[in-house]
Design a protein around this nucleic acid. Structure first.
Length: 113
DNA sequence: CTTATGACTATGA
DNA sequence: TTCATAGCCATAA
């Protein structure tokens, strides 16, 4: 990067992966929360973009633990649909609501927890 | 400068 | 409840 100097862009993605990587099993985080931890509460969209570009579990980034602010999952962009995603989370011990959403009230992970 | 787009979020009908 | 719209900010054309 020397001559380039613009390697900070990668830092953003790396930071996102680093945060998601810290999410323990049976816990989830929202896009906005990850963005807030990075100091950019308004850039939740970029967090999602980072997930899209993330290596996934192969890179140690459990993107399936990243959900919407209402506990919903990304449909059509994740591993095979919300249904498959929901099953994976349930396997990890994540609690779900009757509506099919993640129980953020119980499974929301945060720094220091 | 204006538009368009985006794994988002909040609000209103 | 779901759907639609607006707001958010960065980047590109």
């Amino acid at each position: 990067m020397g001559a380039n100097g613009g390697c900070e862009g990668e830092g953003f993605f790396e930071s996102v992966y680093d945060v998601v990587r810290q999410v323990p099993r049976g816990r989830v985080v929202t896009y906005g929360q990850v963005a807030a931890l990075l100091g950019m509460p308004q850039r939740a969209r970029y967090v999602g973009f980072a997930m899209h570009a993330s290596p996934g579990m192969a890179g140690g980034v459990p993107c399936h633990r990243v959900v919407f602010a209402d506990g919903r999952l990304a449909a059509g962009f994740a591993f095979g649909g919300e249904d498959e995603q929901r099953r994976m989370l349930a396997e990890e011990g994540v609690a779900f609501l009757p509506s099919g959403k993640v129980d953020l009230a119980r499974c929301r992970w945060e720094v220091g927890a």
